[in-house]
Design a binder for these strands. Structure first.
Lengths: 201, 201, 201, 201
DNA sequence: AATGAATGAGTCTTCATTCAT
DNA sequence: AATGAATGAAGACTCATTCAT
């Protein structure tokens, strides 16, 4: 038993160290494009050595992927909390998602990076796919809650696409402040929710 | 007069050399993520020297941007041709756009890259913005042609977003062939066209 | 005869073109370390093509050397003018020379460059040596004029060295303006003149 | 304590590695103009990798500067040893300095390079200035030892200038062997010492 | 004689990853 | 388990010089 406890402790410690690395990475990503962040910088920010990072991740891509997966899990949970008591309206769901993207551009950049280009191992691809499906499920649930009766999966795909597309189209709107972009993308989110909604009934 | 002719010739030659570079780049991009393509490879593929490339572009980013802008112009023209005689239906427009993205993933990757991260000069940003606006205009025109009477710009934004989002969500659908992806994304395009259409009347 | 005239004309034209190149180079050197100036820049500044420069100089080093030799000739002539009527005093000679170096740092940089490092052809070395000797002669003449009776050549060497050394020691005196440096180096010139002078009698 | 010891050891090792790099650089500089020596060559000569060099110096200029500063420190110490017991005579000091320059042309080339042209950071300029001042101090001390009572700083400047100028004027004396140059420059050093000396009393 | 596009060897520098301590 | 110095392949970019027009 002691052994188990020890192992649990060790695992906990290992997890918390992992979290420290993730937090350090996120801090850096908040300020700069994640592709330009180096292992050395992450190590420094985390207050540990480069070697230690490789003790937790076999390479940088895995670390990046972990950041992404954690973020995906977070937004998934936020969506879950939203519909904890009663089904979320399409509108609040769309706004929540776009709000999250505004606050976490790195999440969106990584989604774009991994979905379009990154050379992922089969294992990594699998993890990625799982999280994406989880997100999609929430979309589908919300659509069903809004009364959609058929083509629910396909429509969820479409909705997910529509929301994701918002950021790629407006993130770099020239001459706009972050606040401008947030306002504009949230308006688009609401509009898209409305369009999908009106299509249901 | 001769002088003018000579200059025209020179300009033509310059343009064609530029085209050779662009074609070489595109050929390479078709096989690999454009971010991993090197100047040396492009030069080799184009059958010219590295130095010559820098004679036409002051740096790699400018070359990449030119590839993107050319592509954007191409799809813009395709959309124009579509509605040459009578207003394009929403559906054909969406299908044409998504079909293009399937055939030119590099275009989409670059759009994502430049819109989200790339450190662009103000001048480059300006060019990017112009082309994006041109694309948006076509969306708006098609929506108006489909009978949309109000919020036309905003709705065009939403439609553009929805279409762009399709690829980011499905480009790396695991275990699917290119044909699968094309079929699926085209179905989504059609569905989105339908949703926007039904929202109009 | 006509032929000769024509040749003279051509030669004159050639010389003036050469002068244009030299002036362009000098203009650029006034603003930046001459080692960092490129052929392209000189061509642009001169309003001619790169090829034309190579029509007048077989390589960049030759051009640089010509700039240096012209400059050396100029200061030599200035020294001559100084002692046109009566022998220049040691002091005015030293001040004139150091004043010139302050106004023409490129001359000094080039002297340093060619004397210490530059891979010169035998022919170029010969030209360099001739000009340096010409300068030295003026020093010697002035020393003799000041009453020096023996070791005149050697002392001229020493004086020339002492003056040249002033600039290497103070050109980058930190936190000093050009005016400060001029004042200081001129004071040193005067002091050195005094030391050599007092050593004579 | 162990910790301190360990740190001391590490620092020692670091210093010795730094020394290996410096020695490798010096070896190469002895044969060729230091400006033409590449990082690759230094790494090869030192038996280490390119990357390691950048682990000790953030860029080539810093390495070059370090070579210079070390050299400056060396000659400063030699001058100190000279006057360890009794004040050095002006003559021995001048001869020692010029002898050193003959043996270490790179030191002189670098002094010329950094003082006249090099784009140095403020920090680097500061270090350069400090070492130059240290050298100057020795000149001043020797002059005072020789009986100079006034204008000591200014005269030290003049002496330092005079000595430095010797090399720029004769390093490339055409058709002379190294031995010739050494003999000639030492004679000049002695003469300059004499001139300054006779000026004192 | 003038042009200037093309050349390509060669430069410095970066950075993910390894591994001896 | 943690460290961080060492590695070195690889990249973008420069620029004197050539030569066909």
């Amino acid at each position: 038993m002691t052994n188990t406890k020890l192992q649990t402790l060790k695992q906990t410690e290992r997890d918390s160290r992992r979290q420290i690395i993730l937090d350090a990475a996120l801090t850096l990503f908040a300020a700069r494009d994640f592709r330009s962040v180096t292992v050395r910088e992450i190590a420094k920010q985390a207050g540990i050595s480069i070697g230690t990072i490789y003790n937790y991740y076999s390479n940088l891509t895995e670390l990046f992927l972990d950041v992404f997966l954690n973020s995906a899990e977070e937004i998934t949970q936020l969506l879950d909390q939203l519909s904890d008591q009663e089904p979320a309206t399409l509108e609040t769901l769309c706004e929540l998602y776009i709000g999250y993207l505004n606050d976490n551009m790195t999440f969106y950049q990584m989604m774009s990076h991994f979905m379009l280009g990154g050379d992922l191992t089969p294992d990594a691809t699998q993890k990625l796919d799982t999280q994406m499906k989880a997100l999609m499920n929430r979309m589908e649930t919300a659509l069903i809650g809004a009364g959609l009766g058929k083509n629910t999966r396909m429509t969820a795909h479409a909705l997910f696409s529509a929301l994701n597309g918002i950021m790629i189209s407006y993130a770099r709107y020239p001459g706009k402040t972050d606040a401008d972009i947030r306002r504009h993308t949230l308006r688009l989110a609401k509009m898209i929710a409305g369009i999908f909604k009106s299509n249901i009934s």
